[in-house]
Design a protein around this nucleic acid. Structure first.
Length: 124
RNA sequence: UAAGUAAGACAGGCAAUCGCGGCUGCAGGCGCCGAAAGGCAGCAGACGAGGAAAGUCCGGGCUUCACAGGGCAGGAUGCCGGAUAACGUCCGGUGGAGGUGACUCCAAGGCCAGUGCAACAGAAAUAAACCGCCCGGGCAGAUGGAUGGGGAUGCAGCGUCCCGUUCUUUGCUGUAUCCCCAUCCAUCUGCCCGGGUAAGGGUGGAAAGGCAGUGUAAGAGACUACCGCCUUCCUGGUAACAGGGAGGGCACAUGUAAACCCCAUCCGAAGCAAGACCAAAGAGAGGCAAUGUGGCUGCCCGUCACGUCUCAGGUAGGUCGCUCGAGCACGUCGGUAACGGCGUGCCUAGACAGAUGAUUGUCCAACGACAGAACCCGGCUUAUCGUCUUACUUAACAC
């Protein structure tokens, strides 16, 4: 990814949880915290309650892919942690995409033009 | 054609675009990050999850630690033979159970080494007379018979009294019938006592080998035939075992070892976060330099910290372990088979927060189940939408 890398250390996750701001909808909880660099770092956390290994892995890939496809829409300089809730089990790609932009808009890190486009899709 | 049995294969396909992972080449030396070890970045190429990758239930390799030898404890396995690196796996057989059959299933050593347990029911549960059957004795009753005694009546004889026409007393003896009593015997019934008996009864998972006959007071392996059991011999088989002969007449006498236990065989422990190597910082030891600077403290003494080099140690971090292996495919030979030998060809994920996704088009038996490698193998178990292939069985129809 051009502007981003993944968030890896448990320490980094805890830092974002403790100091960052969070918003949530029915599919995800999103924490963000400014990391003081030129890049975004994104991490995905999925509980075992959501499903078995295949289900969790697939959701993670879809979220990363969704972020990657529209990476340029996000403002840089943040650590982002997406926690997947149980309701996301079995969601389609389009629904994950709309939910992700909904949270990005609440955090005001998605550009207005992209956010405007996403309000057309309903968030349940 | 239908129903079924066994074995096996596949696990949505294709194309385009964007994206991910390590590998190979350009590549050697450059650029960037780092103290170092080492890592990162560019372009191109091919490759990139499973039959169960799962559960982590067994077995082995590998690694570190421990280890003279022996024993105890603990654990696992348990018909026989073979395969294998090994196994609780697989193959072939034996025995048993199920199915019309193809075929399937089986913790299948030992409770005549010991100990324990066996609810309820039942007379009694590892030892037994509750009922029943039979024998003997006693008591009571009934029936029948025999003997004896007594009484009544009839008859006969003799005697006696009255009488001498009639009427008629009484005794004794014999005999017949009836009644009563006693004793004995037989049969039956009831009760009691002593003994025999495990054939029958009902309970139970299990009641003292089964079943039929002989036999007996009644019964009983008491005896006999068949079956079972035990001992022993012969034959076949490597063996489990099978077939046959002879004997014992059945004692220990039931079940349970997935109860303790006994017997035989096997097992050192922990696991890739194993472990090996490189290696900042901090703390440690020694050498060298200096006699300095700073703090306690304004001064003296004292004390603490600060330099550099080497060593051991190994933290953060990094590299290796990490995928060429009991490997796969094909052929051939040996073997019933599991499997093994030989030959040829091939290289087929290797991450370390952990790579396969999205969109579009198209095809199908049409929305595709269960499910994601984590050191590697051999198995077992569990989950699973469906599709296909082969062999065989049964039934119906046709020929």
């Amino acid at each position: 990814m051009k502007f981003s890398e993944s968030l890896k250390k448990n320490k980094d996750f805890k830092n974002v949880y403790n100091k960052g701001k969070s918003y949530a909808n029915s599919l995800f909880v999103m924490y963000i915290f400014p990391n003081g660099t030129e890049q975004n770092r994104i991490g995905v956390s999925i509980s075992k309650k959501v499903g078995n290994s295949v289900v969790r892995h697939r959701l993670k890939r879809q979220i990363i892919e969704c972020y990657r496809m529209s990476e340029e829409s996000f403002q840089c300089g943040y650590d982002i942690v997406v926690i997947v809730r149980k309701g996301a089990q079995g969601s389609s790609y389009s629904r994950i995409e709309s939910a992700l932009f909904h949270l990005g808009k609440l955090h005001k890190i998605v550009s207005a033009r992209q956010a405007q486009a996403d309000t057309d899709i309903d968030i349940i």
